[in-house]
């Protein structure tokens, strides 16, 4: 089973993408993805990202291979209501945070993290949505250091934490913490570089890596090639789905 832990639907003005839910789902099904953890892309630039969560809940009601991943923002005073609503929706196991877009410091979100852990929700914290070199000059968003996400995992050992969109150098720099923190994982959707996954596997990280496509911003075909071309069947199966199935209870 192939589980994409980091997919989106929505608009992105600096790329010529087709971000409608049907188009994103079709692009992922075309490369064999079985389950799509889907977040609303429009949440990134919306003053209240919660307003876009209804779209992925509706998508999950329409397609049983879509698992909604709402975006929550601890700086919105009504985040507790939004979390309560998320818990009534079908198949919500994972919640996404976009701290560089709101923006806020992760140290200010500890109450939110505690609430996730209490509700048995995992969290994916996005470190990058697009390459800072290619951003609109009036809309520049720096990367979130992956270490800040690892700090969350260290402070909240009962919470499953996924680093969303780290570059391959960021994952490499996080190796020791990925190995020492049992609740910390990394999505590989932006882990580019020749042999990147092969090197991670050789360094003992197989069980800590999760397949993400970053569709529709990135080409799903490329996401699959990064994992499948370089690894043996067991490692491919773990990264494409088994690890995510285990930690998300899918």
């Amino acid at each position: 089973m192939i589980i994409d832990v980091n997919a989106w639907a929505g608009h992105w003005s600096t790329l010529p993408i087709e971000g409608g839910i049907a188009a994103v789902r079709a692009s992922l099904k075309a490369v064999g993805v079985d389950r799509i953890c889907l977040s609303p892309l429009d949440a990134a630039w919306c003053p209240n990202p919660h307003l876009h969560n209804a779209k992925v809940y509706a998508a999950a009601r329409q397609f049983d291979d879509i698992d909604p991943v709402p975006v929550l923002d601890p700086t919105i005073p009504t985040w507790r209501d939004e979390l309560a609503d998320a818990l009534t929706q079908p198949r919500v196991r994972l919640v996404k945070l976009l701290p560089t877009y709101s923006p806020y410091d992760l140290s200010a979100a500890d109450e939110l993290f505690a609430a996730f852990a209490q509700s048995r929700l995992a969290v994916i914290i996005q470190t990058r949505l697009d390459d800072p070199r290619h951003q609109h000059p009036l809309a520049q968003v720096p990367d979130l250091p992956a270490d800040a996400v690892a700090d969350v995992a260290a402070r909240h050992p009962g919470l499953t934490v996924i680093v969303g969109g780290p570059t391959w150098t960021a994952i490499r720099g996080l190796r020791e913490r990925l190995l020492s923190l049992p609740n910390l994982y990394a999505d590989v959707s932006q882990a580019d570089g020749m042999n990147s996954l092969k090197i991670f596997v050789a360094e003992g990280l197989t069980s800590k890596l999760l397949f993400g496509s970053h569709a529709p911003l990135f080409v799903p075909f490329s996401a699959l090639a990064r994992v499948v071309n370089d690894l043996n069947d067991d490692d491919v199966a773990a990264i494409l789905g088994k690890n995510a199935a285990r930690i998300l209870g899918l």
Partner: peptide, 17 residues
Amino acid sequence: DAPIRHFGVVLGKTLGT
């Protein structure tokens, strides 16, 4: 642009169209 980038990932930009 290998080895900075991955042969197959960049191929996907074309093959995935």
